[in-house]
Design a protein around this nucleic acid. Structure first.
Lengths: 339, 339
DNA sequence: TTGTATGCGTTATCAT
DNA sequence: ATGATAACGCATACAA
């Protein structure tokens, strides 16, 4: 295996000192070098196929130019758009994004966090908003590396947070259903230990109460199709009257609800309206096409990245909370209340 | 900003030399150090919150313990499962996965590749199988870093490749349609410059010819819903009889076809059967639920990772081609031919 | 404008 | 079993 070509090799071929090569190859310092020698250096570098060693550079500069992004579940389609938003702004600034998946598992969350810390990422974007994962957030802060929370806020404040307007979205959903004549609505919320669950559940309580409709909240075990299916199952088995409309904790839960309703022979929306949350990719291709609260996922990612960048440059963070507006996308899964 | 704690700090606190600390903290060399001192070192490290610097280590060992994964489009839901498969086997070996998105863009492909090369990834997994992206593959080989191709083979052979059985899948799909009585089938293939497109189109030609049914192939501009929509558009506008069944290049194209058919008032499957390819997540939640060829996405990723690991350890690669079996999942988008 | 020298934090090779 | 030392490849403060 031929040793990789280093800055010294380039210097030798270009007949200059390696310091000059370094200056020539970095945009920052390029101005300091003579046009002639610059050309020579560039040519030599190209000729040798020189590729700068980011590890050596990072060691010297103590900046890795990498950002760690920790998400709970890559398979949830809301994350790819967010990641794209993140990448777009970060790549433009020369950063590489390290994506780490936790599978919603506490121990892997800790281990990927550790691994990212070892790589000396210049900052973190955390999308794993359980109320009880303070540890990782605080450890990041303790390690003195900037953190931005995304989509889901952590329990206590004090850290920058970017998310969609959860309360506003729920209010929109409830208003839509009330307008369609629904008088009995159930919120099939996410797991109680997610911060988004809390915001949305509280907003639901407020909105439904204000509208004067009968309402109730049940909690799914996870933000997945399966958990949605199970929660619908409980709902159907419970004694008492069945609601005419369901507000789901997110689109996956909504999908699960619909699957279970279909199994029961309950048609959506004729016999039961369902509203999702997030407007994930493909929401319009499901059956029925999902009425859901649109979250500007890509923008959320982009804003988180910008906030982080600002934090990195400033050397300290202001705990700004950025709440992006949402909207209701009415499609096929909601209709007039059955009478 | 307090300087990060280094191995020297730990050494001082534990009252040993930093070389000893290094040995104590690495599983490989741990045996060489006295049990007593090992305990002291560990305690000191914990006490100081020591986090080893992967850049310094990588510089010294010339192994970054990172793997670069280049994919064309994170938004295509077939990739997350593949990535999971990859991560699972790589993380277990202590590797960190660097995921890079190209958005199917040649120039970003080159730039992310370059960036990964700078980071001195120990290997590449490439899922960007355009027939014409030889350059990147060869550059990787030239840089002497192991490469495994995934899902889509590159033009020429010579590199390890893991993929599903494209030809077999198409044969399954055609047989299924023929059995349902379809005598006129069109293949809505992907873009011609994808290697999978070629394998599948060839297989379609063979299978349809052998079955003795009327057939034709058209090419979508991309593997997206929109491109599928457009290709259906052309199909409907063309003079002559309309087929009774469509075999799509992948599930997204199938979705696009169905969207366009619906806009035309053509019901699927009553008036037109559609078969997808990949069995992407949510395929069963669409309307109608997609009949499609199931690809073992996770396994493909895992096998690619294993192959790469072997290549890294061996220091050289055997150009093995691993083809994993596929199966047909019959759901709602196919039915008897209209008469 | 260019060269010199130093150190970033590790690990590997030697020596003890 | 542990300590001393050098080297990995680069950027930068300083000198020329």
């Amino acid at each position: 295996m031929p040793r990789r070509v280093t800055i010294d090799d380039v210097a030798r071929l270009a007949e200059v000192h390696k310091a000059t090569v370094s200056r020539a190859l970095n945009a920052q310092t390029r101005g300091q070098v003579n046009a002639e020698t610059l050309k020579r250096v560039k040519k030599a570098a190209r000729q040798l196929g020189y590729v700068p060693n980011a590890m050596a550079r990072g060691l010297r500069t103590s900046r890795s130019m990498t950002i760690g992004v920790i998400i709970p579940d890559l398979m949830n389609p809301i994350f790819p758009p967010m990641i794209r938003g993140i990448e777009r702004v970060l790549q433009a600034q020369g950063y590489t994004v390290l994506i780490a998946n936790t599978d919603s598992h506490d121990d892997v969350e800790i281990s990927v966090f550790e691994s990212l810390l070892q790589r000396r990422v210049d900052g973190f974007i955390l999308a794993t908003g359980r109320l009880d994962d303070q540890p990782v957030v605080e450890e990041a802060a303790a390690a003195d590396v900037p953190v931005v929370l995304v989509n889901r806020g952590s329990g206590i404040g004090g850290y920058p947070l970017v998310s969609g307007d959860n309360a506003g979205g729920i209010a929109l959903a409830v208003a839509h259903l009330v307008e369609l004549g629904h008088r009995h609505i159930v919120h099939a919320a996410g797991p109680p230990n997610f911060s988004t669950t809390r915001s949305r559940a509280e907003a639901f309580e407020v909105a439904a109460t204000k509208a004067g409709v009968r309402h109730d909240t049940v909690y799914a075990a996870a933000l997945t199709i399966e958990a949605g299916f199970d929660v619908a199952d409980q709902l159907l088995k419970k004694a008492g009257p069945i609601p005419t409309a369901l507000v789901a904790g997110n689109d996956l839960v909504a999908l699960g609800l619909i699957r279970r309703l279909r199994a029961e022979g309950l048609r959506c929306p004729e016999e039961m309206s369902v509203v999702g949350f997030n407007d994930m990719p493909f929401a319009e291709d499901f059956w029925p096409p999902l009425t859901t609260v649109h979250m500007p996922l890509r923008e959320i990612g982009a804003e988180a990245a910008r906030l982080l960048l600002r934090g990195i440059e400033a050397g300290e963070q202001d705990a700004a909370t950025l709440t992006l507006p949402v909207s209701l996308v009415v499609r096929g899964s909601t209709g007039p209340a059955r009478s």
